[in-house]
């Protein structure tokens, strides 16, 4: 996939200041951080104010290793969001992090034909502009 920059104003971007924003602030620091319950230790993504396992409101933004495996993918053709129109067909993936949670993302530097279940991947970070960094994944070469 090319990582061609798109016009920033039309890139779908999160609104700063919500309860989700610490995720994006961490990405800006090139860290993948996921909510972890401080009572029972359960990891949860998407972020939410209570633990669905034990209902505790206490949590931390836990640093993830960034290692994951591809558990699903799609190849998107038109119609797509305007910000992605110039890159069709493009892929999107769902990964399962080593620590358990799942994430929607994209794979960098991977041919569409090479998409496969259980592909080992590692997080990397792509700056969309001076304000937004998105977590993406790269294939870990098999030893």
């Amino acid at each position: 996939m090319t990582t061609k920059r798109v016009f920033p104003s039309e890139f779908p971007r999160p609104l700063p200041g919500t309860e989700f924003w610490p995720f994006w602030e961490a990405c800006r620091r090139r860290e993948l951080r996921i909510q972890r319950c401080l009572e029972c230790g359960e990891l949860r993504h998407h972020p939410r104010p209570y633990c669905p396992g034990c209902r505790s409101r206490r949590f931390e933004w836990a640093l993830m290793s960034g290692r994951a495996r591809v558990v699903s993918w799609t190849i998107c053709h038109p119609p797509v969001l305007p910000a992605f129109a110039d890159r069709v067909p493009y892929q999107a993936i769902v990964v399962e992090l080593e620590e358990g949670p799942f994430l929607v993302s994209n794979l960098i530097g991977c041919e569409l034909d090479d998409l496969a279940f259980d592909l080992p991947v590692q997080v990397c970070f792509v700056d969309i502009d001076d304000e937004l960094t998105v977590p993406q994944f790269e294939v870990i070469p098999r030893p």
Partner: peptide
């Protein structure tokens, strides 16, 4: 629009926005 305040922010920046794209990821799994 830009400025996603809801959970679309965990799909749209990755090019996943239409229901068909979400269902494709479920179907592939």
């Amino acid at each position: 629009t830009s400025g996603l305040a809801d959970l679309r922010q965990f799909h749209h920046p990755f090019g996943i926005a239409a229901p068909v794209q979400e269902m494709a990821l479920i179907a592939r799994r």
